[in-house]
């Protein structure tokens, strides 16, 4: 166990899986010579060479499709999108090819591929560069969707994703890459589909995942000062969702807040709230509340961006509200 950044944890996972299985290769913009737009692939070109660490032109649709084609005939591609905003150009290959081929072929063509890259807003990158697409991709049967919030989970989930025989959409975060945490050395696998109770409390549940885990943990710390103890359920995987972990927590606390980066309408939080009302109807002491981005494209100006993003105060306010405590 050693302290590492989220970036280094991903790098370890890639490196170890590429050492372990020579069918695994990495492809995307700036992954090689430039060492990754966010340096996640640092050193990989030097170790594995140009055939396995492939710099592409700016052609998201094309190289996503090259990944799917290679996966059809037995390779195990890891496709890096510089950010998920640009992956919109590749959505056809992800949704119409990767997610469909197994089903359409009656089980003949599994597609073992990972589509990964940073998702959601960083700082002041404005409307086209600040979008979270987890709800979009989680909508699609035929995909698995994971979104780790800590370095250890980043490593464990990326290794599992690469070994998975299905298409896995893997959401990272620009603001997560520099965050640090304990990361187990070597073989360390986090199962896809399993949530993690990141903090225990009995007053309220915060269900979250990805970058928002950081906000939830900070909110939990501050709430603790007022004697409010929250469970933080980190989903880690958005699809398939760990229903048992959510309902076990809500049965204990009887209250829930769902915190996510993306937009409200048809968001992941809506899915979680639906699960809770179905599974825990008799346990609930308050309606489930949601914290999310304002229902607008992301603005550039610092003050507007701050107002648009979910944050710790908004999360605390939601928890206090489901506990019927006065706003402070």
């Amino acid at each position: 166990m050693a302290v590492a950044t989220y970036r280094d944890a991903l790098n370890q996972a890639l490196k170890e899986e590429m050492q372990r299985d020579d069918r695994v290769f990495l492809m995307g913009e700036e992954v090689g010579v430039y060492q990754g737009a966010y340096k996640v692939s640092k050193g990989l070109l030097q170790e594995f060479g140009e055939m396995r660490v492939v710099d592409t032109p700016i052609t998201e649709l094309g190289f996503a499709g090259i990944g799917v084609g290679a996966a059809m005939v037995g390779l195990r591609p890891v496709i890096e999108f510089m950010t998920w905003n640009f992956a919109l150009l590749a959505i056809d290959q992800v949704v119409n090819a990767a997610a469909k081929l197994l089903y359409m072929s009656g089980g003949q063509f599994p597609i073992p591929i990972v589509f990964r890259g940073p998702n959601g807003a960083a700082l002041q990158l404005s409307a086209q560069h600040s979008q979270a697409f987890d709800a979009w991709l989680a909508h699609i049967p035929g995909l698995k969707v994971v979104s780790p919030g800590t370095p250890a989970d980043a490593k464990g989930l990326l290794k599992s994703a690469i070994r998975d025989d299905n298409p896995v959409v893997f959401f990272e975060g620009e603001m997560l890459y520099n965050t640090k945490g304990d990361v187990p050395d070597g073989e360390y696998l986090t199962p896809i589909g399993q949530a993690d109770l990141k903090r225990e409390g009995d007053h309220c549940t915060i269900v979250t995942y990805g970058k928002s885990v950081l906000l939830a943990m900070q909110a939990a710390d501050q709430l603790a000062k007022d004697g409010i103890r929250v469970d933080v359920v980190d989903l880690r995987t958005v699809r398939p969702m760990d229903v048992n972990a959510i309902s076990a927590s809500v049965r204990k606390t009887n209250r829930a807040v769902v915190l996510e980066e993306g937009w409200e309408v048809c968001g992941v939080g809506a899915q979680v709230a639906d699960l809770i009302q179905r599974e825990c109807f008799d346990d609930l002491d308050a309606p489930v509340l949601r914290v999310h981005q304002a229902d607008v494209p992301m603005p550039y100006a610092r003050n507007l961006e701050r107002a648009a993003k979910p944050d710790v105060p908004k999360t605390i306010a939601a928890v206090r509200k489901v506990m019927y405590l006065e706003e402070r």
């Binding site: 404005s126 550039y300 100006a301 507007l304």
Partner: peptide
């Protein structure tokens, strides 16, 4: 990122 910007601070440099 100010109110008198050509896009009222919504767009920024790009």
């Amino acid at each position: 990122g100010r109110a008198d910007g050509c896009a009222r601070g919504k767009g920024g440099s790009m």
